[in-house]
Design a protein around this nucleic acid. Structure first.
Lengths: 145, 145
DNA sequence: AAATAACACCACAAAATTTGTAGACTAATA
DNA sequence: TATTAGTCTACAAATTTTGTGGTGTTATTT
């Protein structure tokens, strides 16, 4: 299961994706719209900024905004920033590899399956972007009916 | 990431799978071979027994053993017993569904991707069984060279 | 029947992680 | 220079994970 932190991050980003190119958005507004504790959200957005997903502007008229177009940031990237490894076992992670503590087998009989799971998961999460989880925009709705 | 508990469970089961039909195996022996804290392992094995994956025998000559052939227990089943949900979001879980707390969108823009991830993961974990992660058996090795 | 072996069960404790908060600081703008 | 809004550090509360202790129960052996 994804942590709340990651879920908050995805929600905030789906909101910011819908506002891409419309100027900075206040943390306060995101927190309110998405019902995320504001100080917690602060930390998350800052982390995403330090990882070059977001950018920000201080002072009046400031706020957060996507650094690049929504389709330029994969969900895998976001998840690695806020959640950490995507793989289910440390010994099978591409970016957070760790030798399994106390693995007693010379040839691990377990990790093969989890390499498959990892690859199947990554195939999706590397190809999907913020554009794919972008919140529905009001102006995109068709009111002509 | 899978919890240590789940990793321990998988290791213990890979060991028991290799010993299928060879009588009960002592908790003590599994703990030693697989370097798992014995009291922690007790809890795990009991849970797997209560879920009908394992069976046990008390007293002298007792121990734990697989209730059915290794290929009869899927990894998905094991993981649901010891780890809980396989899906990455509560609102997308088949066996542990929960409405997303504070989901503010009428139509969630996020869950579609995670349904895909869930399905890709389950396709593997439902089809792979304990037979697939079974520890190499010594008698299966070819010493003729 | 007594002794012993081994699982069953309950309750708790330590450790780690996650989630959330407080408050001072810095930068930008009007 | 006052105000606005992000930055940063540190901490605290809550929850989950990991691990332990002790007693009970059942089966086997002698």
């Amino acid at each position: 299961m994804l942590s709340k932190k990651t879920q908050y991050a995805l929600r905030a980003l789906s909101f910011l994706a819908a506002r891409f190119d419309q100027g900075p958005v206040l943390i306060h507004e995101i927190a309110e719209q998405k019902k995320i504790p504001i100080k917690f959200l602060e930390n998350i957005l800052l982390e995403l900024k330090n990882a070059d997903v977001l950018d920000s502007k201080k002072g009046r008229g400031g706020g957060y905004f996507l650094k690049t177009a929504p389709n330029q940031t994969s969900l895998a990237k976001v998840m690695r920033i806020v959640e950490g490894p995507i793989a289910l076992l440390p010994c099978v992670s591409l970016y957070f590899y760790q030798k399994c503590a106390d693995c007693t087998e010379e040839v691990c009989s377990i990790n093969g399956v989890f390499i498959q799971v990892r690859d199947a998961t990554l195939k999706i999460l590397e190809s999907k972007t913020l554009e794919d989880i972008q919140e529905m925009r009001l102006e995109a709705l068709d009111f002509s009916i």
